[in-house]
């Protein structure tokens, strides 16, 4: 008997009587746009993200974003973005330093600042992690209260890979001292539109 069969037969023999799954509809949360936006700004800020609130202002992304990057990350900052990109070449992140990774998450979560991005919004998965800084453009209408609503709205396997990112990478592994910038991005900026 293979290990697979052996394991499965032992589980079958040992498992208890079937217990039903609980009802998840009990986790309902108020949808109040103003509160969602405020909560999202608060949780993101707590997670050490910089939030720029541009809600209600008409922006021309093509000019605003490059200007924003130049002002905040330097005139020569190298940007990587799958947005409006016709360049499908695979970039070698080992030999190419990227300053800013820019994308537009599909969904954002008020309770914890999580923002969902998937393969299409990254082009290359490593980009969201190996770039020095991340910059997310979040449409405030995509903010949901909690992870329950997020998973309801998403199809986690619509793409081969998807990730919730809630801020810059961090660690407190040395004496519980919080350090922003561990192995992933060292800063995260959210532009709320």
């Amino acid at each position: 008997m293979s290990s697979r069969e052996h394991i499965l037969s032992r589980i079958k023999k040992h498992k208890p009587q079937l217990i039903e799954l609980p009802d998840l509809s009990v986790f309902a949360h108020e949808i109040n746009t103003e509160k969602l936006v405020n909560d999202f700004i608060n949780t993101s800020t707590t997670n050490a993200s910089t939030v720029v609130n541009m809600i209600g202002q008409s922006i021309n992304f093509d000019t605003y974003i490059p200007l924003f990057i130049a002002e905040n990350f330097g005139d020569n900052a190298i940007t990587y973005t799958p947005l409006n990109s016709s360049n499908k070449e695979i970039l070698d992140f080992k030999s190419n330093h990227i300053d800013v990774f820019v994308t537009q998450p599909q969904i954002a979560v008020a309770e914890n600042g999580c923002m969902w991005i998937h393969d299409k919004q990254m082009q290359q998965r490593i980009a969201a992690f190996a770039s020095e800084h991340t910059l997310f453009i979040v449409d405030h209408k995509t903010i949901v209260p909690t992870m329950h609503q997020a998973y309801k709205a998403l199809q986690i396997n619509a793409h081969g890979y998807g990730v919730f990112i809630a801020g810059p990478s961090k660690t407190a592994d040395i004496e519980q001292s919080l350090v922003i910038g561990a192995q992933g991005a060292v800063s995260n900026t959210v532009i709320l539109v």
Binding site: V109, N112, G113, T146, Y161, V163, F164, A166
Partner: peptide, 24 residues
């Protein structure tokens, strides 16, 4: 949804970890 809400809050008090990665 249930478990991500519980895990980091129970572990370190964060509302979630910074990265929650889904590999398919």
């Amino acid at each position: 949804g249930v478990f991500i809400r519980l895990l980091a809050r129970s572990a370190t008090g964060q509302p979630s970890t910074i990265y929650t990665s889904h590999y398919h």
